[in-house]
């Protein structure tokens, strides 16, 4: 007789999420890449990418994702989101060559999507693992 166990992990959930995982990843990137002419875009696709992190936590609550690296990557993407429009708009590349507009929008969608995905994922992982343990982190 053991007292106050944490509920065991379910094998059904593990296998199902394991099978769905690549398709969710693909769907997220599909929404991001096609964002400029179909519904969806960077934020929505990023939400799906972030839900992958949470799904993984719900199934295997292991603390092996390096959230420091994700956090740094997310900052790099945030910087790129600010710098890329500066480059494209102020140098007038998009105005000169209208054919580039599509590539510019796709690039921005990808940057926003990855940034939102990593950002929300890191936030959730930090909530999950640092809750109540007295650890803090700097922004």
């Amino acid at each position: 007789m053991k007292t106050e166990r944490v509920s065991e992990d379910s094998l059904i959930l593990q296998i199902t999420i394991g099978l769905l995982f690549p398709f969710m990843l693909l769907f997220g990137f599909y929404i991001i890449v096609n964002g400029h002419y179909t519904p969806g875009g960077g934020f929505q696709g990023g939400g799906i990418l972030a839900s992958l992190f949470i799904a993984r936590y719900v199934i295997f609550p292991l603390e092996d994702t390096d959230s420091e690296v994700l956090h740094s990557l997310q900052r790099v993407f945030l910087a790129a989101i600010m710098l890329v429009p500066l480059f494209f708009l102020f140098t007038g590349v998009v105005a000169q060559y209208p054919a580039w507009q599509k590539h510019y929008l796709t690039l921005m969608d990808i940057l926003i999507g990855v940034q939102v995905g990593f950002g929300l994922g890191v936030a959730v992982l930090r909530f999950a693992f640092f809750q109540g343990s007295g650890q803090t982190w700097h922004l």
Partner: peptide, 14 residues
């Protein structure tokens, strides 16, 4: 799309 992703995916998992 935003409602489906955030409302029923992300928030439910959270």
């Amino acid at each position: 799309v935003a409602e489906a992703v955030i409302g029923s995916g992300l928030v439910t998992l959270l």
